[in-house]
Design a binder for these strands. Sequence first.
DNA 1: AGTGAGATGGCCT
DNA 2: GGCCATCTCACTA
Length: 189
Amino acid sequence: MPRLDQAFYARKTATVAKALLGKVLCHQISPKKIMRGRIVEVEAYLGFEDPACHTFKGRKTERVRSMYLSGGHAYLFIIYGIHYCFNVVTRSEKYPEAVLVRALEPIDPPNSSLNGPGKLSKAFLLTKKQDGLSLFDPKSKLWIEDDGHHVPKSQIVSASRIGVDYAGAAAKWPLRFLVKNSPHVSRKP
DNA sequence: AGTGAGATGGCCT
DNA sequence: GGCCATCTCACTA
């Protein structure tokens, strides 16, 4: 299966977010074992102009360093002292923006619990170790692939982002995207 | 169905 | 010191 290339990630963040729906996140966790899940829910975070984004107004701390990498790198951070959140960096080094992957439909192993950013990170063994990894380097053990499954535009629902009420009006921006009627999302829109 | 609190620790002002 | 891009469980109803 073809791994998504860097050009895929270099586009506008909301475009990448919607295009990621239906794609398959893969993590090779041992020589014989690859975790796979189909992306069904994402959120876009729009950098400098987005009060909900970690890089709002150009913030550049140690934690967010990976967001200043080029599109197609992983950004992992820890939240509430317990959970990890997995993000895909978009655009270029000049624009620190990213897509949070919020939920996956289990493929392998089946019946795993992947309906939430913390849960999917735990199941896929995604931690700070994966922070900054390339998703397009052919040698990388973490990548996203296109298996031909296509989610038509009519099947994409947008909604407010979750857990960012502190961001004022930006909390209402329709930057959360879900596959319509998917039973695998973190919560119904 | 909806609300509320606790876990638990790095990060930021 | 206070705040979180979360999750689970307990409680009300």
